[in-house]
Design a protein around this nucleic acid. Sequence first.
DNA 1: GCTGCCTCTTACAATTTTATTACAAGGCAG
DNA 2: CTGCCTTGTAATAAAATTGTAAGAGGCAGC
Lengths: 221, 221
Amino acid sequence: MADIFLLEDDRILSRGITIALQKDGHRVTAAYSFLEALGQYRRQKYDLFLLDINLPDGNGLAFCRKVRETSETPVLFLTANDREEDMLEGYGAGGDDYIPKPFSVEVLRKKVQAVLKRTLGDHLRIRYKDLEVDPDKCLVWMKGEEVHLTSTEYKLLNYLLQNRGRVVTRGMILENLWDIDGNFVDENTVRVNVKRLRQKLGDANQEYIVTVFGMGYTFGE
Amino acid sequence: MADIFLLEDDRILSRGITIALQKDGHRVTAAYSFLEALGQYRRQKYDLFLLDINLPDGNGLAFCRKVRETSETPVLFLTANDREEDMLEGYGAGGDDYIPKPFSVEVLRKKVQAVLKRTLGDHLRIRYKDLEVDPDKCLVWMKGEEVHLTSTEYKLLNYLLQNRGRVVTRGMILENLWDIDGNFVDENTVRVNVKRLRQKLGDANQEYIVTVFGMGYTFGE
DNA sequence: GCTGCCTCTTACAATTTTATTACAAGGCAG
DNA sequence: CTGCCTTGTAATAAAATTGTAAGAGGCAGC
């Protein structure tokens, strides 16, 4: 299961690719033009970019370079088989592989699978809307931007994520995140930390951490 | 995966070779003239030199001798097929093999692969930015300069490298690098050793060893 | 609107965590 | 033994985090 960004102007082909990949459990975000892609791709982290090279209003290669400026996310190019120079340039722009058109769905799935296996491994990231959490690195991203959290904030976020769909009271949070050894901590402590977390996540409107009046907090929804 | 230095004045050919080798997972640094090569090649360690013999401003053979003064790094020559004397001279200058022009990309890849297999074996060097580590020889280079590390520092660096992408706590480091036989060592020991390592690596800005406040350390990123 | 309760927000000081430095004990080669 | 290098400890400085308290803002019931 991975997040895949697809840039392909042929809508019918795009639809086909999307369906094939979704069948494999991936989430696909499709863009149909260079400009649209530029506007969209930063809104979330992706595990793989699938880029058509020839676009009516730009070039997939340029887009690849743009991606490469800030990340190592793998890139697969879709290109007409007879345009060998495109293929070569694809590697030049930092692409990981290419799929010559026309291609069978099987080839596409295999290539995608291979790249994902190589790059993701068993590495698992948690995503919700524009939020992304990497439990291994203890890193958090919001709209693609890395957000620095303190360990308390990180633990708090993690706790809320693990209890998604449930309302957790401040008491529960205190019990789980603060070692209560007779050393009492004010419940307001939780409020302050929630506030700080919200601030760092840019979550003024409680899209992520939602207050349930009289109860506590819940994540999302 | 290896670092390859390419000296070839024909830019189109150079580009093609670069792309082909990158496809095989190698990193290629290209120089287009004798002088440029002289200035560049010391900035990093390479696993293989690919040298054109005929250059407008110098000679690949001379460059090869220069390389041979300080290292045993393998050298492959690119030479026009009809200049047999070049080929012979190539071996004289310390070259390991030659590839007659014009050559197909396949031949190039095979020869490169063969040489690397022979010289590197499964020997794997770790590189990150300007840092290079040879786990077999326990040697470390920074910006091409060898850095002397004590065994503790080396073990520490290695541990961090092996856990790249993960945050390791001071406790984990202690458990793994210090034989805790009831003989307790202060956690600050780790801090001090990290400090010493950073100093030797010239890593004042934590580009390599990054502190994760409240957690521990992580390598890179 | 008013009241009482719940939640948010803010600034600040205390605490915790990390970095730095100096020093002394131990080890090893000559 | 002597000198040099390594390495842990402890003390100090620097940096970052975190709890508290107090006031502001909301919400529900009346």
